[in-house]
């Protein structure tokens, strides 16, 4: 994204070009324009290091051509995961992306106001 790049060479994103049918749904869901169309109307990875592993592409690839380890790039969530020996999860922390709010049950972990940067952009 414009002017902002995170650490390079870390993403777990993999595209299996053999399985790609060129439906291009990944192009339409990626928030960082990681994919680009090839000349033979299929898809290639154009900007691997821009990937934030949100998982939208893999979730929407009906042909299983995309694999990655999806998750939230949130320090607090990862530390929580280490402390509780679980998968990274937002939860009991205050502030940051994912503090809890009242009414949350263990299965419904709730981010706070600033949540994941998306509020600021007022997503529909």
């Amino acid at each position: 994204m414009r002017g902002l790049r995170y650490i390079s060479g870390v993403t777990s994103l993999k595209l299996d070009a053999e399985k790609c049918t060129g439906c291009r749904v990944c192009l339409s869901v990626c928030p960082h324009a990681v994919f680009a169309e090839t000349d033979d109307r299929r898809v290639r990875v154009a900007d691997l290091d821009a990937c934030m592993e949100c998982g939208a592409c893999a979730k929407n690839c009906a042909f299983g051509a995309i694999s990655l380890k999806p998750g939230v790039g949130c320090a607090e969530a990862i530390i929580n995961g280490w402390l509780h020996h679980t998968e990274p999860s937002c939860g009991d922390g205050a502030g940051g992306c994912c503090g809890s709010s009242t009414g949350s049950s263990p299965s419904t972990l709730q981010p706070t106001t600033g949540g994941c940067g998306s509020d600021s952009a007022a997503p529909s």
Binding site: V10, S12, G73, C74, A75, E76, A77, G96, C116
Partner: peptide, 20 residues
């Protein structure tokens, strides 16, 4: 500052873990 990664729309979990 590292905790702010959770509020940004471009940091990957693999990157945050490595950084941590």
């Amino acid at each position: 500052g590292l905790n702010f990664t959770g509020a940004t729309p471009y940091t990957s979990p693999s990157g945050v873990e490595k950084e941590l």
